[in-house]
Write a protein that binds this DNA or RNA. Structure first.
Lengths: 365, 365
DNA sequence: TGGATGCTTGCATTCGCAGTCAACGACGCC
DNA sequence: GGCGTCGTTGACTGCGAATGCAAGCATCCA
């Protein structure tokens, strides 16, 4: 019933502020003001305009608005398939948070974990206000972004040269919790199953594990590399667990591989977990809590991390000060049945606010 | 080294086509043409412009371009958390495919599975060229979209009134394959574990199962509803499997619930799968193939479905003819160890091209 | 050699809206 | 009653790139 588009029935002619102005008998400026909070307009006029707008089904064009305000309300999000596999919820969470902040998420999927100058041009050409990158950006690319005034927040990555803000998970603290737990459970000889060689997240976790184990006087063998997948974990298990000198614990760089190792133990190698080997993961994906696995793992606080990332990018967009900070949120240790000792279901550590580095003082004050 | 932004070192002043024109000693039109394929420009001029552009790090603004061409190269994607939980890869896949098509994915996350007029206004205000909705849109909302010339493709949904194109999975065929397999395995008395009451995907699968079982002379008890999650499946299991009259098979509306049922059988109820009960799922998520579960399930061809959805939306954007079609891709039956009979690893049916309804003849010809 | 043709190029305009500026009326104060 | 102030309103311009149009130029043919 009623109408919805003023004149032309076909052709999808956009309804513009002029159409609304004409119908309401006011100027185009008035229409514009009626849709901006805090604009100088009487409530009577605003009501009249909005009535007319509703009648025509008018919505201000973000594109036209962006052209003049120099703000697109678009936030670019960079991901690779690996990111989304390891953290299936990340896109939904980021999208949700960005939306809460009044913008929208424009997704850029990358084939390889690396943004070059072309990729940057691509981002720039879509006029994003800022970028959240769950991918690797070379330092010189970051410098270009800075030079162009494009705010970047790195997610689970960071810029050693401090050329971008970043949000991550404090693997060092996490690994200390884990090491303490394992030591208490009797671990003496642990192996580490890493992700792909050079994968930043995996390297970070490996380094953290090394440091934590060292400070607990436990040994950690040289890492074995797989590709983050369940299949690759399962495949790597026989090598890791050769009877000759089998480690008593396998620490994995992510959950998927850990679950693969557990499956290999039980179904391929006839080993009991944690009886013969303890297995740990990192991320706390949904499956880790399923009774078939009951994986002890470090829970990455995704909700907090994404919220923080969005918060930081929004602040940088409004601020654009060159101050940089790196925020590390604390993972929780979730103890389940794949390790010895502790009580199943124990959670050690409170996820959330963690370390903060950088020149800026408080974000959450 | 070198420079990257012409004059102002700070302030992030955008590099415009005028800047490039000035540097190259040509008109702004020339710059514009140098960046459009097929534009009337000599290769010499184009080269000169591009050299200048590279020097300044210029990239044409999609926003300005969109304003005049009336094409934003933005495709809106509507999802709820449920969508992304059931199909973790969907956003990545859609993003990837949309990118292949030269556009970008703008994500709209919904709290509830329903788009009202406000939501539509929101979409319109972001000037998306088209919408892929993995959510429910009321018929009158679809009509509004049509009236406004906004192409919509429904994903795993459809418009009974035929007011939008749609892509889905042919559950009817799938369930027929499954029913045949189960019958061969000795199923006589099956129960159905559905998703939330009214959830379109679940209802569709339930109806398909009902029809398929009926035509195989197997009984299917009234559905029990859960919420699609592993936990809810596990929780529903005791009721479904009460010793008094325990069904010999449980058909689930998605994999997560099926895995929950399996966990409940083994860990809570002391029942063997498939010895005491056979369990089946739908989707073929990664975990279904893990040896701890080995779930027999119907594999939804996500890659094909997303590709098809993007293909359709792109075609509608270019075409904008009012013809509507509904494309159903065929799921494959993946037989694993959670059902009796068949050989583990068998795959029945070829996923991909399936039924097609609607006035338009061929998309892939 | 004159003119027709086709390819390049620049000029001027346009997309839809935000914000500046000036005009206007109402009101309060001296 | 005159004047300043404030709150509203409309006209106009500009954001950055695309494109119709016409001019410029080379080429080709008769």
């Amino acid at each position: 019933m009623a109408d919805s588009i003023g004149d032309g029935t076909e052709g999808g002619g956009r309804v513009t502020s002029y159409d609304v102005a004409r119908l309401a008998g006011v100027s185009q400026s008035a229409v514009s003001r009626a849709f901006r909070d805090g604009a100088s307009i009487s409530s009577a006029l605003r009501a009249r305009v909005q009535r007319a707008a509703r009648e025509l089904g008018y919505a201000p064009s973000n594109i036209a608005r962006a052209l003049i305000t120099q703000r697109s309300r678009l936030i670019g999000v960079l991901v690779t398939e690996t990111t989304t596999r390891n953290t299936p919820d990340i896109l939904f969470h980021l999208g949700h948070e960005i939306q809460q902040a009044g913008s929208r998420m424009l997704v850029f999927t990358l084939a390889v974990d690396r943004v070059d100058e072309d990729g940057l041009r691509d981002l720039l050409s879509f006029d994003v206000d800022g970028v959240i990158a769950a991918t690797t950006l070379a330092e010189d690319t970051l410098e270009l972004c800075a030079r162009r005034g494009l705010p970047v927040v790195l997610y689970n990555r960071h810029s050693p040269a401090g050329q971008a803000d970043s949000v991550g998970c404090d693997s060092a603290s996490g690994m200390r919790l884990l090491a303490a737990h394992l030591r208490q459970g009797g671990t003496r000889d642990a192996a580490f199953l890493a992700g792909p060689r050079g994968a930043p997240v995996s390297e970070d976790r490996l380094a953290a594990a090394r440091a934590a184990f060292a400070s607990c006087d436990m040994s950690l063998r040289p890492a074995v590399h797989a590709d983050y997948s369940h299949a690759s974990g399962r495949q790597a298990a026989p090598g890791l667990l050769a009877p000759r000198r089998r480690p008593d614990t396998i620490v994995c760089a992510n959950d998927a591989m850990a679950l693969g190792v557990i499956d290999a133990c039980r179904h391929d190698l006839g080993l009991a977990v944690p009886g013969d080997v303890a297995v740990t993961g990192f991320d706390d994906v949904a499956q880790a809590s399923w009774p078939a696995y009951a994986l002890t793992t470090l829970a990455q606080p995704i909700a907090e991390q994404t919220r923080m990332a969005v918060r930081m990018i929004v602040e940088r967009i409004e601020d654009s000060s060159p101050a940089r900070e790196r925020r590390l949120l604390l993972p929780r240790l979730v103890i389940r049945g794949s390790t010895r000792g502790g009580h199943d279901g124990d959670v050690i550590g409170r996820s959330g606010e963690g370390r903060k580095e950088g020149s800026k003082e408080a974000l959450l004050s």
